[in-house]
Design a protein around this nucleic acid. Structure first.
Lengths: 223, 223
DNA sequence: GTATTATTTTAGGGCATCCTAAAATTTTAT
DNA sequence: ATAAAATTTTAGGATGCCCTAAAATAATAC
């Protein structure tokens, strides 16, 4: 219960949590890719986390987080996203440059710190990328989000989240001046390459690739 | 120059820096005490830091920080004290409960973060314990400070720093309602045990031990 | 100035995490 | 349904930092 985990252990747990969030049950190789190591090292860690009952693991048969493991993952995600919010909101970081620093800050161990930070920031529900911040009980707010490729034509919507934190994506979005809160609508979809012509409020329309559209999540504007 | 150090290496450097600040040239055993390890482990690390040119070290002959080593130490101290200031000023921590958390936060690696934090806090010069915060060039402000045992009778002075961060000391100060900024004067010094009778503004006088008086630093009030 | 004591260093080994190479198992393709 | 390919696991070794015990050196006491 008091589980004092190493930074390494926390990173494995977080990786597994994120893979599970994407639907598919995670594989050894996927985890290795995320934590930047080799499959053999992952297997070793799986055994360790299994022994600590944070994972349900049968060799060759896959693994998922136990309830306890999920709680820990939610705690880490909470810290990560609160720090990101802090960095953007209070320290004036760009939303595309906070991920790496938050990767370090998320491992600071002090419940008091997290709770006080949360109060200081007025209990934000979503981080600067639009991802929900779990509350202190691990509860997550959901806002109805639609993938941009599924948005109907000529309906104005607001960007509420992005599909990944890769710097490549964030750089592109910055260049195109699209961020959380941007209002846009779809003028056209082109079957040839699935590219999408969008119009951002008050600006001339332009076309974005299918990959980029897939990385954007929007909600309808209740006008 | 880009020196990417481990948390452990940073902790050794910081320990050596603080020992040097106290005047005496540091010993292997003193460092072991501070970083909570054995002398043998310290020797090992001394060799490593020497190889990285952060230390001038000759076996059996002692060691001191090189210029590069001192720069690194100042960077860590700067981060530690800025975070302490943040915790007390913005997150409403008590000044007696921030040290441990700051021990973790000081190892977060991002110059941009430190600089932005510094701006956010309006470039504070002293941390909540009265210790000076080095600026981004490693420059340290000094305020004239007098040890309370050397303060003359009936001269009002203001507490500007405390001699250590030990929880025992901070707890005692809290109980006696003495902190940075407290104004007081000495009514009496007792030769028998070197205890000191002090009066805090508007309150009845009381006596404190020699040890406690030694742990308090004051400056005269320019009235 | 030598003997005793204290300090520092070396020697040798432990644990966590990483690695490569090989073996075991599962999945895919025909 | 079996052969080939991909994945996962085991085996064995490396590195960073820790430890204890013993050896080397320095400091102190008489």
């Amino acid at each position: 219960m008091v589980s004092n985990l190493t930074v390494t252990e926390e990173n494995y747990i977080k990786a597994i949590y994120h893979l599970q969030q994407k639907g598919d049950t995670p594989t050894t190789n996927q985890v290795a890719e995320i934590v930047q190591t080799r499959a053999a090292s992952v297997t070793e860690m799986l055994k360790k986390l299994n022994a600590k009952k944070l994972l349900n693991y049968e060799k060759y048969q896959g693994f998922t987080l136990s309830n306890e493991g999920r709680k820990i993952a939610l705690g880490i995600v909470r810290k990560h996203r609160l720090w990101e919010f802090f960095l953007v909101e209070k320290l004036q970081f760009g939303w595309d440059e906070v991920h790496e620093v938050a990767e370090e800050l998320e491992h600071i161990k002090s419940n008091k710190l997290v709770d006080k930070l949360d109060s200081f920031l007025n209990h934000p529900k979503f981080d600067p990328h639009g991802d929900p911040i779990p509350d202190s009980n691990g509860k997550i707010s959901h806002q109805p989000q639609i993938n941009l490729v599924n948005l109907a034509l000529n309906i104005t919507a607001e960007v509420v989240a992005v599909g990944s934190q890769s710097t490549a994506l964030l750089e592109l979005l910055k260049h195109k001046k699209i961020g959380i809160g941007t209002e846009l609508l779809i003028k056209n979809k082109f079957a040839f390459d699935n590219s999408v012509e969008i119009q951002v409020k008050e600006q001339p329309p332009f076309t974005i690739s299918h990959q980029l559209a897939q990385a954007l999540y929007v909600k309808l504007i209740s006008a």
